[in-house]
Amino acid sequence: MNNPEDLKTDIASEEVFMQLFLQSERRILGFILALVPHLADAEDLLQETCSIMWRKFDQFERNTDFTAWGISIARYRVLTYRRKAASSKVRFNDQLLEKIADAAIGVSMKSDERALALQTCLAALREKDRELIRLRYFAENSTKQTAEQLGRSVDSVYKALNRVHDSLLWCIRRSLLGEV
Rank of each mutant, 00 (worst) to 15 (best):
Q19N: 08
T146M: 07
S24A: 01
T80C: 08
S87R: 14
Y81D: 12
R152D: 11
D155K: 10
D41E: 06
H165Q: 12
N141M: 13
N63M: 10
E48V: 02
L33N: 14
L46N: 04
E48R: 03
W54L: 06
K99A: 13
H38E: 15
A147K: 02
R77N: 10
L97G: 02
R134Q: 09
E148M: 11
V164Y: 05
I105K: 07
T67N: 06
A74T: 03
F92N: 05
K89I: 09
L97E: 10
A160T: 02
E14N: 03
Q47H: 08
F92Q: 09
A42V: 04
D112F: 05
S72R: 13
K128P: 12
L20K: 02
Q47Y: 01
R83P: 02
D112E: 15
T64N: 04
S153I: 09
L79E: 03
E43I: 05
R62I: 07
S108I: 04
Q149E: 06
W69H: 00
L7F: 00
S153L: 08
Q59I: 02
Q23G: 09
I32K: 02
H165T: 12
R163N: 10
C171Y: 04
D112P: 09
P4I: 06
K99P: 01
E48I: 04
R27I: 02
L7T: 11
V16H: 09
D58M: 01
A86S: 15
I133E: 11
F92T: 11
Q23K: 11
I71Q: 06
N162C: 11
G178H: 03
Y81V: 01
A115M: 10
R173N: 15
E140Y: 13
Y158C: 12
P4W: 08
F17G: 02
A34I: 01
L118D: 06
L35K: 08
K89E: 13
D112G: 13
A40F: 06
A34G: 10
N2W: 12
L169K: 14
N63Q: 11
L45D: 05
E43G: 05
R62F: 09
R62M: 01
